[in-house]
Design a binder for these strands. Structure first.
Length: 512
RNA sequence: GGUGCUAUCGUCUAGUGGCCUAGGACAACGGCCUCUCACGCCGUAAACCCCGGUUCGAGUCCGGGUAGCACUACCA
């Protein structure tokens, strides 16, 4: 009974896409690709009150940036437009109302669901009054619903326009088995399940549970790969499949471990990112609803492939010691039974390391393209070939493209100030004298190659017994303004003769 | 409180009864390289939650504790 693999990522447009959600999407995608199946994207916007404008676009753009491709459902095309593909649509649950009506009715007709008229206030009062109140087989007999009210009363209330919900009728005393691809057999007794609300007349929309099962069935989903927070409601979903008569085509379940806070305990949240100073969202997001701005990996200078690699390894690991994985390698090697069962603390430092690795893999021209805007923001105009050459000298010491500026600024702008610490340690009493002599040497030098300069300067230092470190560090301070940077002849090479001499003279005036 | 899930270095993890004196990576620390700062390289420190049981033998299987997490909405 080999079924075509069809998986879905089904986020809610309630804000920026959390990094944990990104990982869920990634694992779904890897699984789909590996099995030559389909990756669907469906928007679960059944809670009209939590809708955030722009969230849908944000989610789709994030996936696009990361290289997680959508085969069916909603996706963003190369022009940045949202498009719907596939013949199982619509792919926004808010546009599927008529479909859900049908299935709510089916459950009602078959006695698997019932109308309930208890108002939110009444329920709240009940909860306050009865500790651990749960709407279930034991308590529904004392509530206002179609099980306790007469048929006339029920139709009268509905007729009248009373707000109602439809609840799932959970039969008590049954052990419900959920087979989970990651955790094995999970058994929960139906007694602890409550009669979940499936549909609310107030906004004419189903709740997650109903919409989810109906859509997964209609969209022929073969595997449900989602976060562990759904595990407790998985038995309810199994019961729902059964009530609909879809047990034989029920998808397989895999519940992923959660992403945890780097410090302390608990789920990783947006607040942790703010508090510890790292993004928990792929892209920067401006939330129109609450006015907040959240930082993103893209804007922080991360490469999508680094984020993917990092995330893939947070909860999944192959045998062996490989750390670097391309998307293709992940597709090849990923497997659900090698996903960890326990939550993974989010280690931002490792994320930085991954970005460092990927930055080294990018060629200098590509990095130059990314660095040019930053140069412009510092009012620097430079030739791309030169920028690429400079990047080649400093890239091994940075994790992110924006850090290139801190490492290479002196190539573009002559030092105005001199780092005090460096001066104290490297600018000696004899340094001005050394620099004046060096200046003469350099002024008379025509061959400006690294080899020639080395052949010129080193013997001079040796002959006078000035000490290589003493002279070179002073020279470095003149050119860089601090005791940092690549090899000195690489610096003189980029700067050229005139600029080099200019900077030494300038330093002599300023430092004496 | 109830139910469920989980449990190897600080962190991510390898480990599927003998290859474990527990391996790798990040971070930390030390050294080397060197005109500086980095990178890189080499090295050091660092873990099987506890108690029982099964077995000739347990990190690995079983039971019980303990701890952490998740869920417990007319949110997803």
């Amino acid at each position: 009974m080999e079924r075509r693999v069809r998986v879905r990522f089904a986020p809610s447009p309630t804000g920026a896409l959390h990094i944990g959600g990104v990982r869920t999407a990634l694992y779904n995608y890897l699984f789909a690709r590996q099995h030559g199946g389909d990756m669907l994207l469906r928007i679960e916007d059944t809670d009209s009150t939590r809708f955030v404008p722009g969230a849908e676009e944000y989610i789709l753009e994030s996936l696009k940036w990361l290289g997680i491709e959508i085969d069916e459902g909603l996706r963003m095309n190369d022009k940045g437009e949202i498009e719907a593909v596939g013949n199982h649509g619509p792919y926004r649950q808010s546009e599927r109302r008529e479909i859900y009506h049908l299935y709510v009715k089916q459950l009602l007709d078959s006695g698997h669901a019932y109308y309930a008229f208890d108002t939110p206030e009444e329920l709240e009062a009940k909860r306050a009054q009865v500790p651990n109140f749960q709407y279930d087989a034991h308590t529904r007999t004392e509530m206002s619903n179609s099980l306790t009210l007469s048929a006339e009363d029920v139709s009268a209330r509905i007729e009248r326009g009373d707000k109602y919900v439809v609840r799932f009728k959970v039969e008590p005393n049954e052990d419900v088995h959920v087979h989970d691809l990651i955790r094995g057999e999970v058994v929960i007794n139906s007694n602890i399940l409550d009669d979940k609300v499936l549909y609310k007349s107030a906004d004419d929309l189903p709740t997650y549970h109903l919409a989810n099962i109906v859509d997964d069935h209609l969209m022929e989903i073969s595997h449900v790969i989602r976060g562990e927070e759904w595990l407790p409601s998985a038995p309810l979903h199994v019961l729902l499949y059964r009530a609909f008569g879809w047990a034989d085509t029920m998808p397989e379940f895999a519940h992923l471990p959660l992403l945890l806070k780097p410090d302390g305990n608990g789920k990783l949240s947006k607040r942790d990112g703010d508090r510890l100073g790292f993004p928990v969202f792929p892209l920067e997001f401006h939330n129109e609803k609450d006015g907040t701005v959240s930082s993103g990996y893209r804007e922080s200078g991360y490469f999508p492939e680094a984020v993917i690699n990092f995330l893939a390894l947070l909860g999944w690991h192959n045998t062996g010691d490989q750390e670097m994985f391309s998307m293709d390698e992940l597709i090849q090697q990923f497997s659900l039974d090698r996903v960890s069962k326990s939550g993974a603390k989010f280690d931002y430092e490792k994320g930085k390391w991954f970005n460092h690795q990927y930055l080294q893999l990018h060629d200098n021209e590509d990095l130059a393209d990314r660095f040019m805007p930053i140069l412009e923001s510092h009012s620097v105009k430079a030739d791309k070939a030169l920028v690429a050459k400079i990047i080649g000298l400093v890239k091994d010491r940075v994790n992110f493209v924006p850090e290139l500026w801190e490492q290479a600024d002196f190539f573009f702008v002559a030092p105005i100030e001199y780092d005090e610490k460096s001066l104290k340690k490297r600018w000696k009493e004899d340094s001005p004298k050394h620099m004046r002599e060096l200046l003469k040497l350099l002024e008379n030098q025509d061959d400006w190659s690294a080899e020639a300069l080395d052949a010129l300067v080193m013997p001079w230092i040796e002959k006078n017994e000035y000490g290589v470190g003493i002279v070179m560090n002073a020279f470095r301070i003149c050119l860089v303004g601090a005791a940092r940077g690549p090899h000195i002849w690489n610096i003189t090479d980029i700067l050229g003769k005139d600029e080099t001499i200019k900077r030494v003279k300038s330093a002599l005036t300023k430092l004496g």
